[in-house]
């Protein structure tokens, strides 16, 4: 029961997905679409697991009086406050469940949480990449071997391709950069993609056949 049923489920659904690809008939398409719907719906149930885990880890930190418990409290309060405003809102002057309309959720607070907290933090973290890419380039600079030098040289050529201060040299650089992006890039990407394809296909096959079962706790 504990081991066999999951393996049977994997085999049945895995084989079905492979076979349905060759059956254009609508009955096969319906089942395919339903299965994808199921996965999305189960995913939402799983969010409950996630929230529970987040709650438990932080609650434990607080109850065990760990040094950083203040931050855990901040996390829990913001989590529950957002969830509260995600479900309840002041609509027409009184509190109640708020509903999803054509322009999204009605809750004022909920939308502000996105607009003024999630979005600025998100784009700032994203923008940190500018600094990190610089320090990564510096790191590549210091590495002294053939491979790292090749990487750095190609990176420099591509980075300098729009530089207006280089004069006539700039034209050569931008030509070389375009050639790099069109020729070796194409070759390497194709080799990588074929390799990845084979790796994925082999792994998926092992999963379907029940050889690879780390996902259910048996490596």
């Amino acid at each position: 029961m504990k081991r066999q049923i999951p393996l049977v489920l994997v085999l049945i659904f895995g084989l079905f997905m492979v076979i349905q690809y060759f059956i254009p008939h609508e009955s096969s398409e319906w089942i395919y679409e339903y299965l994808l719907d199921w996965i999305t719906i189960i995913g939402v149930f799983a969010l409950v697991l996630g929230i529970w885990s987040l709650f438990k880890v932080n609650y434990d930190k607080i109850s065990q009086r760990k040094p950083d418990r203040g931050y855990s409290l901040v996390l829990l309060i913001s989590l529950f406050a957002t969830m509260f405003f995600g479900f309840f809102a002041k609509v027409d002057g009184s509190w109640g469940l708020h509903f999803s309309t054509a322009d999204g959720l009605q809750s004022y607070m909920y939308r502000h949480a996105y607009e003024y907290i999630i979005r600025p933090i998100q784009s700032t973290i994203f923008s940190l990449l500018a600094f990190f890419i610089a320090s990564a380039a510096y790191r590549a600079f210091r590495a002294r071997n053939v491979l790292a030098s090749l990487l750095l040289a190609a990176a420099l050529i591509v980075m300098l391709r729009f530089n207006p201060y280089l004069g006539p040299l700039g034209d050569y650089i931008s030509e070389a950069a375009n050639w790099l992006l069109n020729v070796p890039n194409l070759a390497a990407k194709r080799a990588i993609v074929i390799g990845i394809g084979l790796g994925m296909v082999a792994t998926a096959l092992k999963v379907i056949l029940g050889i690879e079962r780390s996902y259910m706790g048996k490596g």
Binding site: I133, L151, A154, A155, V158, L180, A188, A191, I192
Partner: peptide
């Protein structure tokens, strides 16, 4: 591969 990674990085 390395040349490609460099180009993609740049």
């Amino acid at each position: 591969l390395m040349v490609t990674f460099g180009a993609s990085f740049g």
